[in-house]
Design a protein around this nucleic acid. Structure first.
Lengths: 345, 345
DNA sequence: TTCGAAAATGCAATCGATTGCATAATTTTA
DNA sequence: TAAAATTATGCAATCGATTGCATTTTCGAA
């Protein structure tokens, strides 16, 4: 029925007004070279003719897409979706579009995504790498072609770029210190894969606080796994098997903390009376469990905003040599029920 | 230092091999017109010369961007990020890129986003409208230019398109029936803004079940608000003020259910012993509260997948007349502690 | 060996906007 | 009022890949 709706172009407008396409182009872009009068006239006609700019043609010509690529492990997780939300917030207000892909913590997929974004000529990329990612050639593509790249949270040391990280060390340090202040002496730590810096830092923050307090940490009290739901249970089981005496557990994320708490309850162990538990990340659920879980708040939305700001700044400025910075975002300790020793002493 | 890194084009490859650019183009696209031998040779050289296809030029020429636009109220919410995750999953595997924007339930922003995507020549759009959206011209742009459009969850009746919705009526009906089976007779309902169909359907499902059970529903037991955190408390307070006798509450989302439960507990009312409570949506936290909250599970990820499948199918097929369908996704009743009457009778 | 069909490759226009460099129109200055 | 300076507009090439329509090459059949 309806034919293929020929699109109006600047040439159609030009012809209609008996002027040149260049003038139309400039007028529509508010180029000051064009007089107020013609500009108005052109815009009016453009509207009437149902003109819609062909962003593709423009991008093709100018080599600027105003598109930012975002690669995250999983969209559907509170921290990441908060960051994305922050990125989108800034990007949108600066006239950028945001394309998002999730790697599912799969290295092959991450590689493919990077290549696709690279070919799609994104103006810049914001990345948080997957668990499996140990080689970085697919990411080096971007700096090699001078395409701005910003990392957040799960960053890559081997690549020079702006980085937004959470103060994992400090957060973990304060968590541990808090546990110690509550009287804990034999504290276990359930951490994530240490090839990811964030978990390494959390471990180090933990160790530092222990050391400062003059407490020694048995190797067997430190367990690393992938911090999924079951891993909390598995870790606790391991500790119990070895008959470890512990009075507190610092889990590197809330998911593990929760699953540990549930399992410990099943074993008849009371939280926080018998064992103090803390998590990390402030997942929405951590506030409403029983007991509510003490944790560390990471400013996801803000991190996204910062990442986008740095990226866009780098895209916009044409400085060849950028002074790369690593922004360490402050964390906030949220003391809730799971780590507050009831007055029993 | 490093000059502007001239990009390799198919012409460079062609010149190098003393063949035509058309052949190179066809070879790289695996066009069967090209012989196996030349194809291989070309691909090899392309690799060596560091060629990267200019997707922009191709899109410009072919008028196909392989980009899907997604408009949601808020990225950072479990249901929506699940849907997005599902969309991305399918889209990626079909070679599409996904661009996401959030309207923040703001009508102006939603309009601007739609225009931008329109100008960016997305191949199709997936939309869940904002709370304020009552006029739809910005969305009609797409069907007018034959750009496929799929709605999910918060759909628009006025526009003919594929729609993916949750069986809100059925879900609410079964919630209510379950409460009745547990012995409840005086059931209150805390619902959302009725201008959104989803809440209207939930209310109707509730009423239907009540009616079928021969129970009458007092007007004063039905309260509508915006279902935020405080609204649960406010609603309960209202019910208490009027001294309503109730034995169950059906809240149209989990947030309200939780806040209601917390407040009721403060008042010394036991859940579920004194009053049964149910929510809707299966927010991640609902499973881990005390008591855990009975609710209705919406298959977000699956909905995203379905939406993407329908959209891509519509993009791919060139049927002019599409048989638009409305997919009603089944819900799952999750009976947890908050609605399970302890054997006290 | 020759011819016709099939297979492979090349030509050249095209998509729509941008922009450096003219050129034309207008205003200011002397 | 003419020349100079300023302001507006136009010309035409360009970005890189695609594709309809030749044209050439290859190959099998007669």
């Amino acid at each position: 029925m309806m034919a293929k709706q020929a699109e109006t172009t600047i040439h159609d407008i030009a012809k209609y007004l008996n002027i040149s396409a260049s003038t139309v182009s400039r007028a529509l872009n508010d180029n000051p070279l064009i007089s107020e009068a013609t500009r108005k006239k052109i815009k009016k006609v453009a509207g009437e003719m149902g003109y819609r700019p062909n962003t593709l043609a423009a991008s093709f010509r100018t080599k600027r897409t105003y598109n930012i690529g975002v690669i995250v492990p999983l969209i559907n997780r509170h921290f990441f979706s908060s960051v994305i939300s922050g990125i989108e917030d800034i990007a949108y207000n600066q006239g950028y579009t945001v394309s998002i892909s999730q790697s599912n913590d799969n290295f092959i997929k991450e590689t493919k995504i990077a290549k696709t974004m690279f070919n799609n000529r994104v103006d810049g990329v914001i990345v948080s790498i997957g668990m499996e990612t140990k080689s970085f050639e697919h990411l080096k593509l971007f700096p090699e072609k001078n395409i701005p790249l910003v990392f957040f949270d799960r960053v890559v040391d081997e690549i020079d770029a702006h980085k937004i990280v959470v103060d994992d060390f400090g957060g973990a340090y304060r968590v541990t210190k808090h546990l110690i202040e509550q009287g804990a002496k034999r504290i276990a730590h359930i951490g994530g894969p240490v090839n990811l810096k964030i978990y390494d830092h959390r471990r180090k923050g933990f160790l530092k606080a222990m050391q400062e307090a003059g407490l020694k940490t048995k190797k067997s009290l430190i367990i690393h796994n992938s911090l999924r739901k079951d891993d909390g249970v598995a870790a606790i089981r391991k500790l119990m098997e070895k008959n470890e005496k512990i009075d507190a557990i610092f889990c590197a994320n809330d998911t593990t903390a929760l699953s540990a708490i549930i399992y410990l309850k099943e074993l008849g162990i009371k939280i926080p009376d018998d064992i103090l538990v803390m998590g990390f990340s402030n997942e929405p659920f951590s506030e409403v469990t029983t007991p509510s879980i003490s944790t560390v708040k990471q400013p996801g939305f803000l991190m996204g905003q910062k990442a986008a700001e740095l990226l866009i700044h780098q895209i916009t400025s044409n400085d060849t040599k950028v002074n790369y910075q690593t922004l360490v975002m402050p964390t906030e300790l949220l003391i809730r029920e799971s780590s507050r020793r009831n007055k029993t002493d």
